[in-house]
Design a protein around this nucleic acid. Structure first.
Lengths: 229, 229
DNA sequence: CAGTGGTCTAGACCACCAT
DNA sequence: TGGTGGTCTAGACCACTGC
């Protein structure tokens, strides 16, 4: 049996990570590698294409494939549903709706989501608890022009995040992370001192070019978001 | 000319995002789609494999391909070199080495990087400025057992991050994000009030199973990290 | 123009796994 | 045990790009 694309990928990766092929150096072309491994060029192509997707090499027609000078370091974070995040760490999840109101979108939200004047939005405030302790405060705005059904949902049992994932499953989003100081209200919700540093995530979600929702999630004091890459 | 894998991928993606194939539903198998488009099965395979890589569908032998119930939303952050981050926003970059010392690794660092007793490390503190304003405070520890050359480098002109990328280009890392309160020293370096909420990134880097470096980067007040997905 | 990667084909065999 | 995806092949043509 001849080499698989995984064998070839592993071989090339080893040459790169162990410094045999330093940044900027030229790799052999597909035909040469195929001959060396006694396999078809398509097999080598898949291995090299995955290395390019992983950010390790750059490929150009005519000039061949080079090891990237500055490896593209991409960290990938899975964006979990908060209930799953809590349950996966072995804690008991509890959800609570704090307030719910239909209003006209405030100016800052209209600008952020490119909404029309007088756009109607549903404003929700919720809390998520892990083993009875405050875990995340959720401040959410839903564009009723895109998901009018949201006005009928009560959100007393299931959170708006899970409801929206079911209603508008495949959307695009912009997400941002920042640090914020606890104001008196957040301090009370999250059981911390006023002025404490809290980890905040904001997300705007779009579907077919229209804004669906904006949410600001503030986590309990000491929360860390971690990943490997 | 028959369909390309991009055509097919776009077609399938449209069916999913527009709700024609709701979460959990079964997609046609590869042979059916190939007949429908009048192309080879390998072409359909590539389109569907990419949709699976993107987290939109789940593929299993015998049972076929289904739209994922909860789309795997993965946000990807490129981890830039701070100099590039500053230059890309059109600001002038300035770097400054605050302190440099060779010491025995403290206990917390030994535990974190799984170092031996009495491991020697280089401890660096640096500042990065954008247009003369504090941008990022860098507190770095380098394992001299893996990169002894670091002891000869002066780090007065180029920062340790860029030096390490050249010395150990392809490594793996664990990264975490959190909010922290400015202590008196950080407040002075970053020109903010003591107690201000600051966005902090910590990263441990490994090469061939050995710890290379640990770094804690604290950003100026108001810093946000943003991406789309 | 010539060298490289990008993609497609028609076919083949195999690995997995629900029934 | 049969249906599905996973992978490989040998060949072909095309697209891009540096010379």
């Amino acid at each position: 049996m001849s080499a698989t694309y995984r064998d070839i990928k592993a071989h090339l990766l080893g040459k790169i990570t162990q410094g045999d092929w330093p940044p900027g150096s030229l790799l052999p072309n597909e035909v040469e590698i195929a001959q060396q491994f006694g396999c078809a060029r398509a097999t080598v192509n898949r291995a090299m294409r995955e290395l390019a997707d992983d950010g390790l090499i750059e490929r150009r027609r005519k000039t061949g494939s080079r090891v990237r000078m500055a490896p593209v370091r991409e960290a990938r974070f899975s964006i979990p549903i908060v209930r799953h995040e809590i349950e996966n760490q072995g804690s008991e999840y509890r959800y609570s709706l704090v307030s719910s109101a239909v209003t006209t979108a405030p100016d800052w939200l209209r600008a952020r989501l490119q909404l029309q004047n007088n756009a109607q939005v549903l404003h929700l405030v919720c809390m998520h608890y892990a083993n009875g302790l405050p875990f995340q405060h959720e401040d959410r705005w839903i564009n009723l022009a895109v998901t009018p059904d949201a006005q009928q949902a009560t959100f007393t049992e299931i959170g708006p995040n899970e409801w929206l994932i079911a209603a508008v499953p495949y959307s695009t989003a912009e997400i941002s992370f920042q640090a914020a100081q606890a104001d008196p209200a957040l301090a009370a919700y999250l059981d911390c001192q006023q002025g404490d540093a809290l980890f905040q995530v904001e997300r705007s979600t779009w579907w077919e070019g229209r804004a669906v929702t904006f949410v600001r999630m503030t986590h309990h004091r000491g929360y860390r978001m971690t990943t490997r890459y």
